Each structure stands twice: as structure tokens, then as C-alpha cells.
Amino acid sequence: MDRLESMAVFARVAEVGSFSAAAKVCDLSATMVAKHVQHLEKRLGAKLIHRTTRRQSLTEVGQAFLADCLDVLARVEAAEDEARERNSQPTGRLRISATVSFGTHVVTPLVHDYLRRYPSVEVDLRLTDRVVDLVEEGIDVAFRFGDLPDSGLVARSLRPRFRLACASPEYLAQHGVPATPADLARHACLLFRDGAPRNRWQFANTPPIQVSGRFVADSGTALLSAARGGLGVALLADFEIADDITTGRLVQLLSDTATQAWPLSLVHLADRRMTAKLRSFVALALERLA
């Protein structure tokens, strides 16, 4: 007899309370149900069910074996579901969350490639700088910066990012090029506001640098525009200024003194079975960004 089938029949007997009731549910004869149970008892060398003319109950061995049976059957079902998912094309709506700047510069091009690769998927990309609740807001996957709390989410580490000091060629021609992080204290710096202006810039292996300037904004895009316009030195994420550095609109400063690494993770809910759309997006993100 098939062992998994016998385990499933035994679990059904325990659930419904009798051989005859299990026979109806399993579409088997009561005799065949009894044979499945007897087959297991013979393999185990122990009684699983106490049977009398009036009632039946699980033995101590039967109770322990039932718990194991239910776990094994659940795992088999999950494995089968996952195999079917892997064999199916990703489809449906995928909800993705990212910060505004990273979402604009990095995630959006990634989504473009993903949609071209999987035409049956719809993407709902939500850009916000607040930390979203994946359960409450129905988010499938999110990009998170910084150290992660123990939230129970599945986290995949991506390539860390860095903030880079930069300025326009026009600004540098007029005010000079800073040679060390300490020189930034004498320059007009463009400050990001997060509650209060971030006027202490931290570079690796150096004390924090106190900076000041006449322009403060709560948007990286606004600071980027100000840097392009020659208003001062900005400290911006590498992905925000990559094109400007390549084209020469901005000059990276202090290239031998990187800022501290900015951890980046891809997170999703802990789930035994990932959908094809989620699995395929995670795979693409890891391929491009890990």
C-alpha cells in the first residue's frame, strides 16, 4: 500500500471519529480504510487506534503519530503546490514598495524589465519614504534601507549603497575643491531635512563633520537640482547622481573617502509557499542588485 495514502486515511479517521465516516469522506470502503490503518500499525509495530463496538480512540502512539502525519501531509501538499507554481507563468498583480528616490532611479527601471519579461503580471509600485506595513497595506515585497528589526519578515541582502559628496563644475571653479571631509565645513552645503536638518555628515573612518548652508529641503530630488544649479555641495545617494557623474554635470568629491555603507534589503512576508510572481521578481532583483 502507498504509505502517504495510508497516512492520509489514518488522519481522516482521527478527524471524523470512525472508519465508516472516513470511508465516505475518502470514497473508500470501510474495509479498505481498516486495511490502511492496519498497514500502518504493522509497519510501526504498535497500535494506533483503540477500537470497540461502541467507540474508538487514539492510543498514545497514535496521538504522536497523528501530529507527525499532519505535518508530513502538509509539507507534501506545500511541495506539490510549489511545483505547480514553478511550472506556471507568473500572473496577477504584484505590489512593490520602495523609497521615493530609490524607487524612481533603481526600482522603476527594474520593473520595466520585469514587465517586459512577464507580460501576464501587473505591477503596483508604491513610492514612500515611510516604513510600510506589508500585511495592512497588502504589499508583496519591499525595499528597505538601514538595519532591520527582528520583524519576522524574510530579508534578502542587496548590494549596500553609499552617499557621495558632489558639486557642479561651476561651483567648484568658483569655490575650490575640498581635499578632505573637514574642508566641507568651509563650503556651502545642501542639507536634507528629516525632522531637523542633517548637518552632521559622516564619512568612514573620520569623525562626523559639522556642515552648514543656506538651502535645506526634505527631498533628494530638490537637493540634486540645487547641486546641478551650482548652489553648493550635496551628499546624495550613489544611485541618485550616477548619471550626472557620468555626464559631467556633477563631480564626485572625496572619492577616496566613502561614506559609511547604507544597508539595503529586499523583504517579504514569511510564507512557506511563494507565488510565481513574487519568486520571479525576487530572482530578478537579486540578479541585478545583489
Rank of each mutant, 00 (worst) to 15 (best):
R130A: 14
V131T: 09
V131R: 00
V131W: 02
V132G: 08
L134R: 04
L134I: 08
V135I: 12
V135G: 09
E137K: 13
E137Y: 12
E137I: 09
G138R: 13
G138K: 13
G138P: 11
I139P: 03
I139Q: 03
I139L: 11
I139V: 15
D140H: 10
D140P: 07
V141G: 00
V141Q: 04
V141N: 01
V141W: 02
A142K: 01
A142T: 06
A142D: 03
F143V: 12
R144T: 11
R144I: 13
F145D: 04
F145H: 07
G146P: 06
G146Q: 10
G146R: 12
G146L: 13
D147M: 15
D147C: 13
D147A: 15
L148R: 15
L148K: 11
L148N: 13
P149T: 12
P149V: 13
P149G: 14
P149M: 13
D150P: 12
D150G: 13
S151T: 14
S151Q: 14
S151I: 10
G152H: 11
G152C: 14
G152F: 11
L153I: 08
L153G: 04
L153Q: 10
L153Y: 09
L153M: 13
L153R: 08
L153H: 09
V154W: 07
A155C: 10
A155H: 10
A155R: 07
A155S: 15
A155W: 07
R156I: 11
R156T: 08
R156G: 06
R156C: 10
R156W: 14
S157F: 10
S157R: 14
S157G: 10
L158R: 03
L158N: 01
L158V: 03
R159L: 07
R159Y: 05
P160Y: 06
R161M: 04
R161Q: 05
R161A: 05
F162L: 05
F162Q: 01
F162A: 05
F162C: 05
L164A: 00
A165I: 02
A165W: 00
C166T: 02
C166E: 03
C166L: 00
C166H: 01
C166D: 00
A167Y: 00
A167E: 00
A167M: 01
A167H: 03
A167V: 03
A167K: 01
S168M: 00
S168I: 01
P169F: 06
P169E: 08
P169D: 06
E170S: 10
E170T: 13
E170Y: 08
Y171W: 03
Y171C: 00
Y171S: 00
Y171K: 02
L172T: 00
A173S: 03
A173C: 02
A173W: 00
Q174D: 08
Q174A: 11
H175S: 02
H175K: 02
H175M: 06
H175R: 03
G176I: 01
G176M: 02
G176Q: 07
V177H: 03
V177Y: 05
V177R: 01
P178W: 04
P178Y: 04
P178R: 03
A179L: 08
A179R: 10
A179V: 08
A179C: 11
